[in-house]
Each structure stands twice: as structure tokens, then as C-alpha cells.
Design a protein around this nucleic acid. Structure first.
Lengths: 132, 132
DNA sequence: AGAGATGTTAGACGGTTTCCAGAACTAGAA
DNA sequence: TTCTAGTTCTGGAAACCGTCTAACATCTCT
């Protein structure tokens, strides 16, 4: 709690009860929730929370680098508190998104990409998660 | 023209003037246009063309494997006539999307992806195109 | 030509996200 | 505390994008 407030302050985000309620869920989850999912979830604790505030807050967090918004499944925007480098695996059956550690994949390019100054890159894998 | 009709027939798509007008642009371009862009563009030749037909046709083409729809830039769905395996580079300044040949990049994974049955994957590179 | 299937159109609709304007809240100063 | 100026929150309206609908047009097959 206290350290959440710290984190917001460190990102120049004024902590309010609404933002804390949202942060508590969305900055700590390993899910990749949509705005709607965040709203439904956080409203359980904070029933007056408006949709607009959820969108404002998610956008603010994204602007401040606390979140990253991604479209890994066609037409679905999700928010990801893991803002560091990593890749993704999408289970096409359940549409669940899994994080893949950056070091788990190696990407190398040949001469054909010399015309491009690559600032970042990301691999998206699709398939089925093996049932263990 | 004739071979375009052939291509549609081969994909079990009945050729109509509207579909041909759309196909002529969208199946031959190296751009990655949005539905709206396709509509604006094709309407110059076929002014009565409705938005609904553009969407119906793009979705039909996608279903039949003539196009692939992608979201390479947050919140923007584009259509790509290059349905074979390849990667993409997004110029973050101009938001232009470039195709990267499949063989230009090599991706290898370590043990941490053994829990996943990968059916396909794609690399998205972001940065600036070098002015040559 | 006629019947039935298929395609097209304009506008209505639906879900998601943003905008707006007023009310509530906040931090800081007195 | 109380005041003030700035910020945030809220619900509803509006914008946006894509889909659906129902009437009409056009094809295809006999």
C-alpha cells in the first residue's frame, strides 16, 4: 500500500483512492486485463468508480510508463504491468496471454534489415499451451 | 483484371464490380491500409460503394485467405495482402509498416518455451527507417 | 423469362473509448 | 482549521469503428 503510493509519486501521479484501487489490481496482476475487466474488478471494492476514471487512470499510467497497452488478440486492447522487455505467447484456444522471458528467445537478423534502425522488437507466439 | 477474377474464383469468391474494385487495390498494394483507407481510395473509382460492402468484402477476403488482418500499431487494424510468413517493421515516425522477409530474421527459443506448442510466430520491429 | 440465391446499400445499431461540465477532492498557505 | 487554486471524479452525452438489417438489385440456373 505505502509502496504503491511511492510508486505513483515516483511517476508523478498523485495518489487518490480511485487510482490506488486501480493500481492495486492492475500494477500487480500477471493477467492482461482489458479496461472493462479492470472496471468490473475494481468496482467490487470501490463501487462508485466510474468507467471514465478507469480509462483516464489506465491512460495516465500508460503515459507515465507504469503500464503498457497491447493488442495481442485482434481487436482487444489489454494492459500489461510488465513494462520491461519480454515476449508473448497467445493460447489460441483460451485466448490467454502468457509472458515469455526476454532471454528465452534469441532473434538475429541478416543484412536485409540494415536499412532499419531497430529501437525495440517483440516476438508474438501463437499456439496452444501444453497441458502439463 | 482477368487474372484477378480468376484469383477470386479460385478462392470461391464471386466476382462483382465492387469486389473487383476493392481487390484491385487491396490485393496488389504493398501498403497496409485500414478499412477506411480502402473505402476512401476505392470510392474514387466506384463512388456509390458503401462502407458495409468494404467491410463485408475485406472480411470475406480475410476468411478466404486472400488477406490477413493485423494490428501492428496500437488500436489500428490494417489489411495485408501478403499472407505468407513474414515479419514487420514499423517506422515510429511515419507509422509506415514495412514487410521484412521471413528469412531475414532467425528466432530460436530455449527450454522455457517447451510448455508451449507454437503454431506460428511473428516478430514486430520498431524504430526508424534509415534514410538512404 | 422466372425463381431462388447471392450481393449491395443506407441507415440503424452496439460496444468501446473519449469528451464534457459540474461536483468533489486535494495540497498548500494563512 | 479555513481558504483557495488546481486537480480529479463522475455520469451522461458524444464520437468512433465495425456490424447488422431489411429492402432492393443482380446474378445463376433452368
Amino acid at each position: 500500500m505505502r509502496e504503491l503510493i511511492e510508486r505513483l509519486r515516483a511517476s508523478a501521479v498523485q495518489a487518490t483512492p480511485q487510482r490506488l484501487a486501480i493500481a492495486e489490481y492492475v500494477l500487480k496482476t500477471t493477467d492482461h486485463p482489458t479496461a472493462e475487466e479492470v472496471w468490473k474488478r475494481v468496482r467490487r471494492r470501490c463501487p462508485t468508480l466510474s468507467r471514465a476514471t478507469v480509462y483516464n487512470t489506465l491512460n495516465l499510467f500508460t503515459e507515465r510508463g507504469l503500464l503498457k497497452s497491447r493488442t495481442l488478440v485482434e481487436g482487444v486492447v489489454v494492459f500489461d504491468p510488465n513494462v520491461g522487455r519480454h515476449h508473448h505467447f497467445v493460447d489460441e484456444e483460451t485466448m490467454t496471454i502468457y509472458d515469455i522471458p526476454w532471454e528465452a528467445l534469441t532473434v538475429s537478423g541478416d543484412g536485409r534489415i540494415q536499412g532499419f534502425e531497430v529501437r525495440e522488437y517483440q516476438v508474438v507466439l501463437r499456439g496452444r499451451r501444453r497441458r502439463s
